[in-house]
Computed example of a mutant assay.
Amino acid sequence: MDEIKIGEILEPGSAHQQRSREERVRASFWKTVRKAAKNIPFLDEVVAGYFCALDPATPTKVRGILLASLAYFVLPLDIIPDFLLGLGFTDDVAVMMAALSAIRNNITPAHRAAARQAIADLDTDEKD
Rank of each mutant, 00 (worst) to 15 (best):
I4P: 02
E126D: 10
A37F: 06
G13Q: 03
A114I: 02
K38L: 13
I107R: 00
A98Y: 04
D91L: 01
A53D: 01
T90C: 10
L87W: 12
Q18D: 07
E3Q: 14
Y72P: 04
S14V: 12
L43Y: 04
W30S: 05
R104S: 15
L66T: 05
L122D: 08
I40R: 00
A120Y: 02
V46W: 00
N105F: 10
V46R: 01
D78V: 12
L67Y: 01
Q17T: 13
I103T: 15
E3T: 14
R26P: 05
S20Q: 12
L43D: 08
M96V: 06
N39F: 15
R24T: 15
A110Y: 04
M1T: 13
Y72N: 08
V33D: 09
P41M: 04
P59G: 07
D91M: 03
F29P: 02
L67W: 00
M1V: 12
A53R: 00
G49Q: 00
A120G: 11
G88D: 06
L87R: 10
T108Y: 03
V74R: 00
S14Q: 09
L10T: 06
H111A: 10
I65E: 02
E23W: 09
A118W: 00
T90D: 11
A115R: 00
V46L: 03
L43R: 03
E3H: 11
D82M: 06
I119G: 06
V33N: 05
G88N: 04
A120C: 05
Q17I: 10
E22D: 10
A15F: 10
I79R: 04
L67K: 02
A113T: 12
F73T: 05
L67Q: 03
N39V: 14
T108A: 10
P56F: 01
L77T: 11
A27P: 06
S28R: 09
A48E: 05
S20N: 12
A57G: 14
M97V: 15
I107F: 01
P41D: 09
G86I: 11
G86A: 09
L84A: 09
E8L: 13
L43N: 05
G64I: 10
Y72C: 05
K38D: 13
K38R: 12
L67P: 03
R116N: 11
D121C: 11
L67T: 09
A118F: 00
A102W: 03
P81W: 04
D91Q: 07
E45T: 06
A68L: 01
A94R: 13
A102S: 13
T32N: 05
A71P: 02
L43Q: 05
V74Y: 00
R21P: 03
I6D: 03
L75S: 14
S69I: 01
P41K: 04
E126H: 07
P56A: 02
L100P: 01
V93F: 08
A110N: 12
N105Q: 10
Y72L: 04
D55C: 08
Y72Q: 04
L85T: 13
E23R: 13
V46G: 00
E126K: 11
F83K: 07
S101N: 13
P59W: 01
P109V: 08
L66E: 03
H111Y: 08
R63G: 04
A15Y: 07
G7M: 07
I80W: 00
P109Q: 09
G86D: 09
F73I: 07
L122Y: 07
S28V: 05
A36E: 07
K127D: 12
T60R: 14
K127V: 15
D55N: 14
L10I: 09
H111K: 07
R116Y: 06
